[in-house]
Design a protein around this nucleic acid. Structure first.
Lengths: 124, 124
DNA sequence: CTAACATGCAACCAAATGGTTGTAGATCAG
DNA sequence: CTGATCTACAACCATTTGGTTGCATGTTAG
């Protein structure tokens, strides 16, 4: 099978592009639309009150972030969503949360240390 | 208890701010640092090859995104991470993935329909 | 009190972003 | 072939972003 491959770690630039792409509601909607149904760029463009060129640019941003891919079909360009990239972003956020849980665990560990004595050594 | 409250849905602007804040590696690192240990802005600033004011701005961006909060302690400002906001972002991404799974389910449902006949009508 | 420190904030600048219009090339319908 | 459609891309513009420096203010240490 081709699925279940472990992907290499994302670079900082790749992560920048992913979150940057997600930081715009039009692009999030385009992503949502192409998750629901694969559509051409012009079909997608009909949903938004902006020029075709603007939508084209938004799709390009999503593409550079690897959140979607395009496939030419005749004169149309079909936008495919890439759920794997999205999942990796979600897992990335989970990892940050995990750091926080680590800290809590460390704090609890310190609190659990029954302090045996209050360090009263002799100096020299 | 105060935990386990169901938060209201995030607005588009809030989501913009969250992903926008995450789309910069310095800010992601600041977030990581403050997850590991609560630090003042100037302590955080020492880690980066940029001015204090620049770091201050990055922290402000994280704050506007509700990813961190600041608490004044004497002359210092302590940066607290907010894991809940991060978790909500992660769950948001999961929701997009789920849309895709819905589509797959719909496709499978169609394929499972045993096609009873191969539409061979008479034309005129 | 005074000096050092931590912060807040304004002004400024270059580059990136998000939109526009216009032009041109490919492809499909008739 | 001709016209309509879909896409690509360039040029342009306003706004935002990510950085800087400089200055003012509050706080702590001596």
């Amino acid at each position: 099978m081709v699925v279940d491959q472990k992907p290499r770690d994302l670079t900082d630039e790749e992560i920048d592009r992913i979150f940057g792409a997600l930081a715009d509601s039009t692009r999030r909607d385009i992503l949502r639309q192409s998750m629901l149904r694969e559509q051409s760029v012009s079909e997608l463009a009909k949903n938004y009150a902006m020029s075709f060129a603007a939508v084209q640019k938004h799709v390009a941003v999503l593409e550079r972030a690897l959140l979607v891919t395009k496939e030419r079909r005749g004169r149309e360009q079909i936008v495919h969503s890439n759920p794997a990239a999205l999942r990796r972003a979600a897992r990335l956020l989970d990892a940050y949360e995990e750091l926080w849980r680590d800290r809590i665990r460390r704090i609890e560990a310190i609190l659990d240390e029954t302090p045996p004595r209050t360090g009263h050594d002799q100096g020299t």
